[in-house]
């Protein structure tokens, strides 16, 4: 019973975190058809920005509760800024290339960003535990949980809801969905696709960085944290179906719960389980859960 509860909570916390990372990735793919390998690096940038901001904030002894606003804003801004630079400086001249070539382009970006991060923040670990300990712990059926984990869940729900509302309830969101559905027709109808791309990429980058920022207090921020995360986010996005935000949520839940089960019962198979779930989903649904195939007309 206890393990079950732990697995459930752990699974949901991990899923929330995965969802936040994956949402930006899938959004960018849906609109731009770019599978951004550097998404993990944007995550890392967010984590580092948040961690340094937390460090600075608490050293100066400002009001602790307001720190959330400050460090999350720092992560979002850093991500958005990096996204802006990448889109304007690089992707813009690469649009129209093959999807697989674009993967390689973003792989190049990843290599560059990994070193940029080391240059900016060094190779020492950063700790930003204050926001984590600030919210304290809760005892639930005799088991202690960090409240910060619930903050993560709440953040995932809020972000998911905002994305949903943004895509379905606003004009801009509807335009985005039009572009996701059919880029050529959208362009013919006069939607400014270039601008849509720009906004989407910046938004996606900011989301990736926000995920990093949210995680920073929960662990030590060290070089290379983005590499692993990026690849996990791929698994999630591919399971849900590339470009589907709802799919990312379901994919995150599947991976999160499966991982939690593995970690608490048979930890050796942790990574195996994550990619095993992805492989299994692709076997059954080659395009992921929420995307359907269209046969070519001849």
């Amino acid at each position: 019973m206890d393990t079950l509860l732990v697995i459930l909570i752990d699974g949901i916390v991990y899923s929330s975190w995965l969802f936040i990372v994956a949402a930006g990735l899938t959004l960018v793919y849906g609109v731009m058809k770019i599978l951004n390998m550097a998404h993990g690096s944007l995550y890392a940038i967010g984590a580092y920005s948040a961690a340094s901001m937390v460090g600075w904030y608490f050293t100066n002894g400002y009001v602790p509760w307001a720190s959330y606003l400050v460090f999350l804003a720092a992560a979002i801004l850093a991500g958005a800024f990096a996204g802006l630079l990448i889109e304007r400086g690089l992707l813009r001249v690469m649009y129209g290339r093959d999807e697989v070539v674009m993967i390689l382009v973003t792989y190049g970006v990843l290599l560059i960003l990994e070193d940029v991060i080391k240059l900016l923040w060094g190779v020492e670990a950063y700790f930003a535990y204050q926001p984590y300990s600030l919210v304290g712990r809760t005892k639930l059926l005799g088991i202690t949980f960090a409240n910060y984990d619930f903050v993560l869940i709440a953040a995932a729900v809020v972000i998911g809801a905002m994305l949903w509302a943004g895509l379905n309830r606003t004009i801009q969101g509807k335009l985005l969905r039009a572009v996701i559905h059919d880029r050529d027709i959208s362009m013919a109808m006069g939607i400014n696709v270039k601008r849509t791309f720009f906004v989407t990429f910046v938004l996606g980058s900011a989301l990736g960085a926000l995920a990093g920022g949210l995680t920073a207090p929960a662990l030590s921020v060290v070089p290379g944290i983005g590499i692993e995360v990026g690849i996990l986010a791929f698994a999630v996005v591919v399971i849900g179906g590339l470009g589907s935000v709802g799919g990312a949520a379901v994919g995150a839940l599947m991976v999160g719960i499966a991982r939690a089960i593995a970690v608490h019962t048979y930890p050796q198979v942790e990574l195996f389980v994550i990619y095993g779930v992805m492989a299994m989903v692709l076997v059954v649904r080659p395009q992921g859960l929420f995307v359907s195939t269209v046969a070519r007309k001849i």
């Binding site: 999807e99 697989v100 690849i231 591919v238 994550i274 990619y275 492989a279 692709l282």
Partner: peptide
């Protein structure tokens, strides 16, 4: 049966499975 991005991602997944197994062995 897979092409393009799906081939790329699935091959990647399989290599990561081996990685995951080795890391824990």
């Amino acid at each position: 049966r897979y092409r393009e991005i799906f081939f790329a991602m699935l091959t990647l997944a399989f290599s990561m499975i081996l990685y995951g197994v080795l890391v824990k062995t």
